[in-house]
């Protein structure tokens, strides 16, 4: 019994210790961002590797999610004779929720896990140590550009996801089930509000981008420097990012749309 309590206490302390280390890393990364100004090329390259290389999966998923939304929405709306509103359903669902959330989940799986594995391996092979001894701070040289790249890429990917999703919904609505094209677009334009919907969606995706990239970088730099350690860290990145994204999504949604 005492052992159980002791074990629980140890675990609990461990969690807080990691959280503390994570916050210190976050602080150091933020403080290191200014060193990137003269060397923006580093960031551009990382935007390419976390962003551009994630494009295919984002576009394909967006298309299918949009098409499914179109079909499901139509099936429900047609019972009420409101199938003209399909554009609203598709656009709002994407911009407010599915765009940021699904993109963040895919981003965690595609780019986050890669970041963790890359940084974890650099640690395991002493490359980070070697950089430190060359007087090159790995937080500024390796982690800060990747963090900033995640911050930049995530909202863009979410926007692309939503846009492609809307097109997917349009194919189904207008092409497949025969909703009137004019009604589809005009109802959508009327109902989607720039501030309430678009801005809030962008805020969400920025928050998710920061959190996912932070988790990925932290897990990599905190990995036990062995093959098993790195593989566990990679798994943790995906799991923790997913939990964080879904949890934060609830909080943000409650704050943004709670009173509407």
């Amino acid at each position: 019994m005492l052992n159980l309590l002791q074990e629980m206490g140890k675990r609990g302390l461990g969690v807080f210790e990691r959280l503390g280390r994570g916050c210190i890393l976050f602080y150091n990364i933020i403080m290191g961002l200014h060193t990137l100004i003269p060397r923006f090329g580093l960031v551009v390259y990382q935007v390419y590797s976390v962003g551009v290389l994630s494009l295919i999966i984002i576009v394909v998923s967006g298309l299918f999610v949009g098409m499914v939304l179109g079909l499901q929405g139509y099936n429900t709306l047609v019972d009420f004779g409101a199938e003209e509103s399909l554009g609203i359903v598709v656009a709002l669902a994407l911009v407010r929720e599915l765009g940021p959330v699904v993109t963040a989940l895919l981003f965690a799986g595609r780019a986050g896990s890669a970041l963790t594995a890359e940084i974890g391996l650099m640690k395991a092979t002493e490359q980070l140590s070697a950089m430190e001894m060359m007087a090159i701070d790995p937080i500024r040289r390796v982690m800060a550009p990747r963090f900033l790249a995640g911050f930049i890429a995530m909202p863009l990917l979410a926007a692309i996801f939503s846009a492609v999703g809307v097109i997917g919904g349009y194919f189904v609505a207008v092409g497949l089930v025969g909703v009137d094209e004019g009604a589809f677009w005009s109802q959508m334009q009327d109902a989607v509000d720039l501030y309430d919907d678009i801005y809030n969606g962008v805020i969400k995706s920025v928050v998710f981008g920061v959190v996912v990239t932070w988790i990925a970088i932290f897990e990599g730099s905190d990995a036990i420097p062995t093959s098993e350690g790195v593989s566990r860290a990679t798994t943790r990145t995906v799991v923790h990012s997913a939990l964080a994204v879904l949890g934060l999504d609830f909080v943000l949604t409650a704050l943004m749309f709670g009173e509407i």
Partner: peptide, 12 residues
């Protein structure tokens, strides 16, 4: 200071 690591630690 320069340091030569035991395993080289080159950037792969």
């Amino acid at each position: 200071m320069g340091m030569l690591f035991q395993n080289g630690a080159l950037l792969t």
